[in-house]
């Protein structure tokens, strides 16, 4: 199949970017979206052009490195799928595909489709952990955890930190990401001692990074490749409001 790609090109953080149109031919429906871009890049290099920079690593939907807004939807229209797991058979021959980076002030563009998501790491630094130095842990069976709690904690913990929630949120909010971690740790007995301070510190850090506030529009959960539920945001709000500031 043949496609017309409109790709955001931006040489560096200081550059004003632009949309550039490329034709790609002979795309196989079995290719992944990133493999299609590989083909484009291979040809750009041989033509002496600058290849399109994009982030990726595992290419199996788990590392959270990849991500672009495809035709107006973070990670493309297929639900619960990362960009690397999106396949070309979901596109029509001859289609025009618009590709843009995650857009949010706390995710500055580094180059083309590559953005800097270190704000997420700083949110975790603010309190997204349980303080337990290596070697100090009691026996794993000393604290039983209800299966339901463990399962819910797991569901929240599957967040891959890709940033699609921010990209899709009309407010540029990082609530789904932040709440997923607060919920994961807050559901487990091990996470209780730091539960209140964690919620406050992480929410505050999210604000300081310049993310917007959540107005419950639900776009985030709709594009989240791991289907993280809005329930985590409920939990975050609850923990935040009930914690001494």
């Amino acid at each position: 199949m043949n496609l017309t790609l409109k790709v955001w090109r931006q040489n560096g953080p200081a550059d004003t970017g632009r949309m550039v149109t490329y034709q790609v031919t002979d795309v196989s429906p079995d290719m992944s979206f990133l493999e299609m871009l590989d083909v484009l890049n291979e040809r750009l290099i041989l033509d002496g052009d600058d290849p399109v920079a994009f982030d990726h690593d595992c290419r199996e939907g788990i590392c959270g490195m990849c991500g672009m807004v495809i035709d107006g939807v973070a990670h493309g229209e297929q639900r619960a799928t990362t960009t690397c797991q999106l396949h070309m058979r979901h596109f029509e021959d001859g289609a025009t595909v618009t590709i843009e980076p995650w857009r949010a002030a706390p995710f500055p563009v580094i180059k083309d489709l590559v953005v800097d998501r270190s704000s997420f790491d700083r949110i975790i630094q603010a309190g997204g952990f349980i303080s337990v130095p290596a070697g100090s842990a009691p026996d794993a069976h000393s604290v039983p955890v209800k299966k339901d709690d463990a399962d819910d904690a797991f569901d929240a913990a599957t967040c891959i930190g890709c940033g699609a929630c921010v990209a899709a949120c009309p407010n540029g909010s990082a609530s789904l990401f932040t709440a997923a971690k607060i919920t994961h740790l807050g559901l487990l007995p091990q996470g209780q001692p730091e539960r209140a301070s964690r919620a406050v510190a992480m929410v505050d850090q999210m604000d300081l990074e310049g993310f917007g506030g959540c107005t419950n529009t639900g776009e985030c959960t709709a594009v989240c490749p791991k289907g993280i539920s809005l329930d985590v945001i409920t939990q975050m709000n609850r923990d935040y409001l009930r914690s001494p500031k």
Binding site: I130, A140, A150, A157, Q190
Partner: peptide, 16 residues
């Protein structure tokens, strides 16, 4: 032990 204390959500049985 270390992983559980850190909050790694390993699979559990109904007994916890």
């Amino acid at each position: 032990d270390q992983a559980v204390a850190q909050g790694v959500p390993f699979a559990r049985e109904y007994g916890g």
